[in-house]
Every structure is written in C-alpha cells, then in structure tokens.
C-alpha cells in the first residue's frame, strides 16, 4: 500500500470544514452538520478515487467491472442495513419531541433545545394506564418464563436421552406453539379458556404465555445438550452422587447458558406478546404491548415513542446478555469465541 500524502489525509477534514461553514452561513446549524458530513465524505471520496485506493480492497486481477460490482454490492447491502436499522433509530430522537408530532419539527432540525423535551417520558411515568400496563407485564412475563423454563429444561433433558420413543412426534407437539399462527392460538385459547373459566384471569394469561415460550426453551436447551458429555453424569453417579445432586452440581452449571438464553427468549416472547393476551386477558391483564397496540389503533400519542425507545434499550441489554452467554458457553465447551 502506497504511503498517503498529507493532503490526501487532511482532505476529508478540509471538505467537512468548508461545507459546514457554507451550511451554517446559508441555512442554519442543522445544515452545518449535514454539510460537515457530506464534506467529509466528498473529501475522502475524491482522493480515494484519485489515488486508486479502491483497488486495495480487491484482488489485483479484478477487472474494472468486477471492482465496480464489488463496491456496488456493498452499497446495496449498506442500503439494506439502513432499511433494517432506520425504523429503530428514528423513534429514538422523535421520542424527545416537544410537540405532539410524529416527524422532526423545524426546531428539532435546528437543534434548538426548545424543540426537545422529556414530556412524553414524563407522561409515561405519570400516566396510570401505562404504569398499570408495566405492572401487569412485569407480573405476567416472569411467571410465564419460570413455568416454561422449569418444564422445558426437564423435557429437553429427557429428549436428549439416547432412546426416546416417539421423539419426532413429541418434538413436533412441543414446538407447535411456535409454528401455529398466533391468531389461531389466541382464538383456540379464547374458546377453550372461556369454557373452563380461565379467560380473563391472570392464571389464564400466564399459562398461555408459558405455552408460547416453551418451544424456545426446548430449542435452545436441546442445542446446548448436544455438546454435553454424558460420561460426566455417569462419573458423578459413580462417585456416589444422587441423580438430583448430579443434576444441580454437574449438569445444570454446564447447560446454564442455554437455559438462561432459552429463558430470555421465553421472557421476551411473553413480554412482547399481544395477540394472545388481547383475547385471553381482560382489562385487568392489560400488558404493555396491549397498551401500545390500543394506542396505535385508536388515539396514537407520542408517548408510544417514549415507550418504544425504552423497549429498544431493554432489547439492546438483552442482546448483550445473550452474546455474553454464548461466549461463555463456547468457552466452557472449549471452543474459541468466534
């Protein structure tokens, strides 16, 4: 790689400064930032092309067409990534909107502090509807998770034994809550639970959500058990440990990452679920997603965006937890984290 000249290195910054000043003078602070960004890109791009640095990333035998396609492909992929991430990024600044609008107001674009406020967050934390919804969600999701994790882990261990009769059929039944469309599960549960008096009760919603979370626990825990060395339990039994002790002291610590990530899946399934609770629950079990759904369908208020932002933060935390668990699990099993 050829050594880059000073002018080539500083060009992006020069471009950024020039266009930023231009934007500030002609339009306003928002355009200054826009100008800085585009100036940086233009400054970099000019020298990137002029110095033929685009050749560095592709094999030297590539033709011009192949090189062009190489970069065009990356631009296309970049566009798809933008499509994937934009909706999530857009709600965040909008939730700080000082007005009840769903678009960026001129004040917001001018980075005027007047244009921003925490009022939608204040509304979320002071409105009893939203607070009730949060409370219900917090009461329902952990109970459902507990049920699906305890039943699911046991069954996953059973399913991983070498000789299980009707394994395929059992697996198909246990996975079915994930495959059957939610609206059908919801309809069936609504009919059946109202027959046995569970419709509109806390227990009914918890049972329904536990059923929906089970496939995730089964899938993640059986996947962890595939790498589990069964001679460890035999060794433990050989040294006099009871089956229960073996389970808690030997097997459980090793499959714990799988159990926790299954639990997280079950938790998010219940926490994020709206169709089933809409039918099986009554006003007393109104969860957060339900409240959001009502809000979106009837009187859409920007408080929803504040809630959405908080939920995105929660899912980022969950994602990080899962990634850490995955690495730990691979370390325990002697694989390098990849």
């Amino acid at each position: 790689m050829a050594k880059r000249s000073t002018i080539s290195k500083s060009a992006p910054w020069i471009g950024a400064a020039v266009l930023a000043v231009l934007g500030l003078v002609t339009a306003g602070p928002a355009y200054a930032i826009l100008g800085a960004l585009s100036g940086f890109v233009i400054g970099w791009l000019v020298f990137w092309i002029a110095e033929r640095r685009y050749r560095d990333a592709v094999p030297s035998y590539y033709t011009a067409g192949q090189t062009l396609w190489h970069y065009a492909f990356r631009v296309i992929c970049g566009g798809i990534f933008v499509f994937l991430i934009t909706p999530i990024l857009v709600v965040m600044p909008l939730s700080f909107n000082a007005e009840d609008f769903f678009t960026f107001t001129p004040e917001m674009l001018a980075f005027d502090p007047e244009g921003y406020s925490l009022k939608h967050y204040r509304d979320f934390f002071s409105n009893s509807d939203w607070q009730n919804a949060v409370r219900n969600s917090i009461q329902i999701a952990p109970m459902a998770t507990l049920l699906s994790v305890s039943f699911g882990t046991l069954a996953a261990i059973g399913l991983s034994q070498p000789h299980v009769p009707f394994r395929r059929a059992i697996m198909a039944i246990l996975i079915s809550p994930m495959i059957v469309p939610l609206i059908i599960s919801a309809a069936g549960m609504y009919f059946f639970y109202s027959r046995i008096g569970l419709q509109g009760t806390y227990l009914g919603v918890v049972l329904a959500h536990a059923a929906l979370g089970i496939p995730f626990v089964i899938i993640t825990v059986t996947a962890t058990l595939v790498g589990f060395d069964n001679s460890l339990t035999r060794a433990a039994a050989n040294m006099g440990a009871s089956p229960v002790r073996t389970f808690f002291k030997v097997q459980m610590p090793l499959i714990l990452p799988g159990v926790i990530s299954g639990g997280l899946f079950a938790f998010i399934t219940s926490f994020d679920e709206v169709v089933v609770v809409l039918f099986v629950g009554s006003a007393g079990q109104k969860t957060l997603p339900w409240q959001m759904f009502t809000g979106l369908r009837e009187q859409i208020s920007p408080t929803i965006l504040a809630v959405a932002t908080l939920l995105v933060v929660i899912s980022v935390l969950l994602l990080m937890t899962l990634e850490l668990l995955r690495r730990r699990s691979e370390r325990l099993r002697g694989m390098s984290p990849g």
Binding site: I88, V274, F293, L296, A308, L311
Partner: peptide, 11 residues
C-alpha cells in the same frame, strides 16, 4: 430482538 410493537409503531 426489538419488540414487534416498537417496529410496527416506528413504521
């Protein structure tokens, strides 16, 4: 991993 409702409301 983001809530379905969040993505729907974003759209």
């Amino acid at each position: 991993w983001t809530s379905l409702l969040v993505r729907t409301s974003a759209w």
